[in-house]
Design a protein around this nucleic acid. Structure first.
Length: 800
RNA sequence: GCGAAAGUGGCGGAACUGGUAGACGCGCGAGACUUAGGAUCUCGUGGCCCUGUGCCGUGGGGGUUCGAGUCCCCCCUUUCGCACCA
């Protein structure tokens, strides 16, 4: 192919040119007018990054590129795609790094943000830089504080003292979600138990709706399952056990197995249970106090170790089992947790492994009440029987099946006012207090006379002061508590001297509402403008990592639901569609700094260009499953773009006129396949189809027709926007490929082959193939097949 | 323990409702063009006896079917969530 050798594919040149032009033309930005009046709004959201000092890593780029490809595809189909990006820059991550480097976060974060911005522009994302957020800016966290006040007013925020996870290294309280396998999620230090007064959001009130709504949203199944698990619904009953010798005192237990009521041979209270004092007899008080003290010191983690042998002490007290009328002893043990159910259980050692273990250790009676057909109910058990069976030794309930038993016993308890059907959730309230510096101050003032008083909304933001000594200490309070000039303030209600809340809020609160802010960043008098919000939300597609399946995503749903109930939003689910992308590994191994095997993006973009890098990342494997990054692999996509360029670029040498019929069919098949797969994020297979098509166009060294290659350009554009713009322009189009609906269409009739190939099989083996003209009827086909089969002299089982 | 996903060439991965397994790409082999090339192009590339109209091949074992990577049953392995949650 003769063409100017100077006019080779030069990614750096092409990319610099188009990034400049997009910026110049405002291609990706919505003006304040435009964002009010989109014709076909499409809100394309991706999880905003934490701007680390290291800069963007491949994981970020993979996530953003996939989301960007999705957004650009919809844009080429004529949608008004809003694709914002921002920075989640508050929090322990940033603060710890600032401490390590000895740089104040107020100086460090802007630097990181600038570096991230540069890198994000470089990868060619369709970001609207006029609608960006930085959670550490007062104009953003002002509204985070406003959000707290709305929940406070709605009685969804409360202050209470609670045992919390305390990380002795980060010197702060952690949410349950941030404790992974007993250690701090961030620094992997073992977590301890402490009691501190803190602010909680009542997310557990929303557990039923958070669970039920999952059926109505289009999310990755894995993510929904993770949330379902986390919310943890259990169906059962609450049962009242009257305490012997304490008239009117009853112990309430939650159980999922009311059918085993008559097998409850003892009870166990959590050591912190409020009734422990009352039921404990003088004789046992010393033992009980000693045990409680020990359990109170132990961190929440060790306490939950499954493999730990059971410990506990007898209180001396007894309860009446309402099923049998028998007196059963009350014990305390740390295997019963105060924060789940009622903090008390009826122990059924015959049918619960933990109770069996405890009963065996302390020589408590074990009574079988469920037995499979044909098994002697009195035969001794050597382990808990948790299988199905018939009720036995259960007074009037004998003979019922397990399932009937659950219903009947619960119903009977209800009618006798001894209990009720109950649903329990594992989900705990969300502790949002952090005894740290780098976050939005919680907008509350404590007044001796008025109690906790919310900061009036017109006094927001409560600015985070610049404090040079922002190091956390072991005092259990925030570094802000050392800044008297800041925390001393008059009470907003009575004017008396008062004191600000010195804790800041959890970073997850910042990210629980940022998607509401993006479209409204032009508005500085409201958190989110009602009309704009109605236009753009809920988010059409949200793409992000599954590591946030139960943290961020659940909080964002909760905040949206709460704002809906408080009258601020007219929808209760923020993300109509969520897709989790997969993870990128390198040469089969996880990437980590310590292994020194991280992919550094900048040099790769220098050498091959952002288009090739994007294309390669999307080609690695199914987007929702991730892929294995192999350094040599980038040659494939790079070669493809070079060939694409060389096929098109001397535009004058392209043939005019209709495509070759063979190529035309392949073209329409390719358009069909790619158009079908793109909305489902089938990026790797779409790219493969386009490569296959280009191979067909170039096969035998033939020169391409314009009509053969031109539709390929918009199809490649979501992946490789720069080269696509350049080729589109060279093909004579003005105004940019992303302006207008330039996605190609296909003719289904043209995707079909003229002949159909039939395989003739005899006894499961292919004996012949024959070509049939399209439209030939089945009878003809069968006749032909049988004839072929006969020729092959196999007479049995011939079929098509 | 509970829940979920996945096992296909040397590697990443294709295969829509059951219909010629291995698309696309990497790697590898041969050749061409070159002073040279880790550039470019062409051809080949699951295994086996390499004789064929040949045999075996999608973690293992059964089954349904004219036909199974795909559907059913049992087992094995890996990865990821949750986990003393009553």
């Amino acid at each position: 192919m003769a063409h100017d050798p100077q006019d080779r594919y030069a990614p750096r040149k092409v990319e610099a040119k188009w990034q400049y032009l997009w910026d110049e033309r405002g291609t990706n930005r919505f003006t304040p007018e435009a964002i009010r009046t989109p014709e076909r709004p499409f809100y394309n959201l991706m999880m905003f990054p934490y701007p680390s000092a290291e800069g963007l890593h491949v994981g970020n780029i993979y996530a953003f590129t996939g989301a960007d490809v999705h957004g650009r595809f919809h844009r080429l189909q004529g949608k008004d795609v809003f694709e914002p990006i921002g920075f989640d820059a508050f929090g322990i991550h940033s603060e710890n790094f600032a401490l390590k480097m000895g740089i104040h976060p107020m100086d460090l974060i802007p630097r990181n943000v600038a570096n991230f911005t540069r890198q994000l522009r470089r990868i060619g994302g369709m970001f609207d830089w006029d609608h960006t957020v930085d959670t550490t800016q007062p104009e953003y966290y002002r509204w985070t504080q406003w959000l707290f006040l709305q929940l406070f007013k709605g009685k969804l925020a409360e202050r209470k003292e609670a045992p919390v996870n305390w990380c002795p290294s980060c010197m702060t309280v952690l949410a349950n979600e941030q404790v992974v396998g007993g250690v701090c999620e961030r620094c992997e230090t073992a977590v301890e138990q402490r009691r501190i007064a803190q602010w909680f959001f009542k997310i557990s009130d929303f557990a039923p709706r958070l669970l039920e709504n999952l059926d109505r949203i289009d999310w990755s199944e894995t993510t929904k399952k993770a949330q379902e698990n986390w919310i943890g619904r259990s169906d059962g009953a609450e049962i009242h056990f009257a305490a012997i010798g304490h008239e009117g005192t009853r112990v309430e237990v939650f159980t999922t197995r009311p059918d085993t009521l008559c097998g409850a041979t003892y009870m166990v209270l959590a050591p912190e249970h409020p009734l422990v004092d009352r039921v404990t007899t003088d004789e046992h008080r010393a033992d009980v106090e000693a045990y409680r003290a020990r359990a109170g010191r132990m961190d929440l983690v060790t306490r939950k170790k499954t493999d730990k042998t059971k410990t506990g002490v007898f209180t001396g007290g007894y309860c009446e089992n309402p099923g049998t009328g028998e007196e059963v002893p009350i014990w305390i043990a740390d295997y019963v947790l105060m924060e789940y159910g009622t903090g008390a259980i009826m122990a059924v050692p015959a049918h619960d492994e933990r109770d069996f273990e405890f009963a065996t250790a302390f020589d408590l009676p074990i009574r079988r009440v469920i037995a499979p057909e044909g098994v002697d109910p009195e035969a001794p058990l050597d382990e808990a029987y948790t299988g199905d069976g018939i009720l036995v030794n259960s007074e009037g309930f004998d003979g019922l099946t397990m399932e009937e038993g659950k219903r009947v016993v619960a119903g009977w308890l209800g009618s006798e006012d001894l209990g009720k059907v109950m649903v329990n959730y594992r989900l705990h309230d969300w502790c949002i207090s952090r005894q740290r510096y780098w976050g939005p101050p919680i907008p509350i003032v404590y007044c001796e006379a008025c109690g906790p008083v919310p900061v009036p909304e017109d006094q927001l933001p409560v600015l985070l002061p610049r404090v040079e000594d922002f190091k956390p200490d072991d005092s259990g309070v925030s570094p802000l508590a050392r800044v008297e000039s800041w925390y001393r303030t008059p009470c907003p209600d009575c004017g008396a001297p008062a004191r600000r809340e010195t804790d800041v809020s959890d970073t997850f609160l910042d990210s629980a509402w940022y998607f509401l802010r993006y479209p409204s960043t032009d508005h500085d008098t409201v958190a989110f403008d009602p009309a704009t919000t109605r236009t753009w939300l809920p988010v059409d597609t949200y793409i992000g990592g599954n590591e946030h399946a139960v943290l961020h995503l659940l909080y964002a749903r909760f905040i949206t639901m709460a704002l809906h109930d408080l009258g601020h939003l007219d929808f209760e689910e923020p993300f109509s569609r969520f897709r989790a992308h997969g993870l990128i590994v390198r040469e089969g191994a996880k990437m980590s700094k310590s292994k020194g095997n991280v992919v550094v993006p900048d040099p790769i973009i220098d050498e091959y260009g952002a288009d090739t890098f994007r294309l390669y990342l999307m080609f690695l494997g199914p987007y929702e499953e991730g892929g294995d990054y192999r350094d040599a692999g980038i040659q494939g996509p790079f070669g493809f773009l070079k060939r694409l360029w060389e096929t098109i670029v001397p535009v004058e040498s392209l043939r005019e006129g209709a495509p070759d019929p063979e190529v035309e069919r392949k073209l329409h098949q390719t358009i069909e396949q790619v158009t079908r797969q793109m909305p489902e994020l089938g990026f790797n297979t779409s790219i493969a189809a386009m490569m296959e098509y280009l191979n067909a166009v170039r096969s035998g060294g033939r020169s391409a027709a314009r009509s053969e290659v031109e539709p390929l350009v918009p199809m490649i554009a979501p992946f490789c926007p720069h080269i696509a713009e350049e080729l589109w322009e060279r093909l004579g189009h003005t105004g940019g490929i992303f302006e207008g609906a330039n996605w190609p269409s296909y003719d289904p009739a043209l995707t079909l082959a003229d002949t159909v190939t039939l395989a003739v099989q005899v006894n499961g083996k292919v004996r012949a193939t024959l070509e049939l003209a399209r439209g030939a009827d089945e009878a003809t086909a069968l006749d032909l097949a049988r004839a072929e089969a006969n020729v092959a002299r196999h007479l049995e089982g011939a079929s098509v």
